[in-house]
Design a protein around this nucleic acid. Structure first.
Lengths: 173, 173, 173, 173
DNA sequence: AATGAATGAGGGTTCATTCAT
DNA sequence: AATGAATGAACCCTCATTCAT
């Protein structure tokens, strides 16, 4: 991958994440990447191709993150890791995650089944811990984590760490 | 308010809610409303004015909904009503709420402090019920409700009613 | 003539004179006149009709001014009055005259033969005073007067009165 | 400079000069230049940028013309050259000059101090020739030249050459 | 691999004008 | 006489994309 191609990807990620996919023009991306507009199309065919490339770039990041949880056998740890998920996102990864959440609202046909394995793992963990209605318990936690992530990425969440501890205590994990 | 003006408002609400504000052209709105494009600008000055008119239209809806909770004195009822919030949204109001959530991600400077009074009321309720850390408890519930609302509006939530009951039981309200 | 009709005429005169005919929209005129846009068309049929009405309104002003010179028999007085022409325009008439000059540049088919009788009168005056080439002398003076008028109306002319006296002396009138 | 870019400039000059800046649409310019409308904006950013490019193109023309006079040391020649100024404009430059004069009336904030050095040079020349009130004499000549130029560019001036000679004789230059 | 010129479709907005009331 | 709703064409400008070099 050439330098210029990477520049395009990084600039696009940042702009898509902050302004949204539709509101970001290819010319803006080219300008910020210090590259001719045509080059974007040579490398990625079209604007959507650029988006897909960005998402693909992060796929592994997501997979690693989820694998870490799904492959965990100790049920308490599964829950603890799920809760900690949004609180451990690194600053440098914010753009990527903000883009993910933005896209869920922006693109009509953006369906994400990425969470499914996580839901099953969680469900299983709650079952092992003898919790009644483990599926609903799992669903509930994931919805909470989603709410937290959203707030975090939008910058709406103060006293982040306090909340993190509070939740770990609540779930006794 | 003339018929055509109302047509514009309704069409715009629907399109903004389904495609997003930026991705919806005024010409699309006009076409769906069966109206000349210019009329939009006669009535609402510009595209943003149209958006504001839509939001204003729903302001009262939001206020009523929140007042119902904030003015409640029985703490258990405060919590119960908060939980029930997303589950009671009527089908016909989905567009409006989907738009609200979309805008939080789409518009850079869309800040909503509408939830603040709700957070205080909830916090108070938990305090009255002797819950430790009532502020965090309140925050947590609101984040969960936000996660639920998002999923609901995006059509990602099956077994809606089951979850509703589960939560009411959990919180013993 | 109703008040509203007159309001339209005066507002249009002012706006056409300051911004130009093309750059002044009928909506701007209506707004400044405190009148509905439709009324303009009821009274003047179309935008050009409005312009013509304004010009007609001033026709008499022009005729009076020129008659004063053309009917003068004393040659020296003819010249003196011609020279004084631009210097005697009243502040309140500036808009009207500015409009006249603007239109000469703005409208393709604005031909004004209004000056012809003046040119003949001047020519005659110079002839009576035994000036060689009275037609050219007349032409020259009119071109000078035109240059002065332009500068005056554009606000480009300082020491107006000094120049006025200087010219009267020059021509010994 | 590509052919198309030059086409745009030339077409715009011609249209602006004949119809005025406001009355000339970018689509008209594009059509006449045989070019897509978007190209105008790629090359000149916006309509005003196009105008500025045209004016810049002629700046040197103006500077050369004025330098020729201002740098002249022989007073009689300064006057002669000033008088000849409008009479020597080449047919091919008419559009450019017509545009200059049009803009003085069309644009609100078009201030031109280009004439200032010329006024000083002329003033000096008249002083050297012992004329009384050289500043006013200079002012007068420039106003006359302006009147002549206007008439010439509007096509209002017959017997051009006769007038030219007449003036040179008058001023004995 | 990379540029920059070029395009056609569509963006939001303003315009002069019409018409029912 | 007067309004205000309504329109269709045109406005300037931006967009994603193509192509010769």
């Amino acid at each position: 991958m050439t330098d210029k191609k990477e520049n395009i990807l990084l600039s696009a990620l940042q702009l898509f994440a902050s302004d949204g996919f539709n509101a970001t023009s290819t010319s803006k991306v080219a300008k910020q990447a210090g590259v001719s507009e045509g080059l974007i199309f040579r490398h990625f065919e079209n604007k959507e191709g650029l988006l897909k490339a960005i998402l693909a770039m992060g796929e592994s990041k997501i997979k690693d993150l989820f694998a870490e949880i799904v492959l965990e056998t100790e049920p308490k740890l599964v829950i603890r890791k799920t809760i900690s998920l949004p609180f451990q996102v690194k600053e440098e990864d914010y753009d990527f995650w903000r883009l993910q959440f933005k896209l869920k609202w922006e693109l009509k046909n953006y369906v994400s089944q990425k969470m499914d394995p996580l839901e099953m793992a969680l469900s299983n963990a709650f079952k092992k811990l003898q919790k009644p209605k483990p599926e609903l318990e799992s669903k509930k936690l994931l919805l909470l984590v989603d709410g937290i992530s959203s707030a975090l990425l939008k910058g709406d969440l103060k006293n982040k760490e306090e909340l993190h501890q509070f939740l770990l205590n609540k779930y006794e994990v």
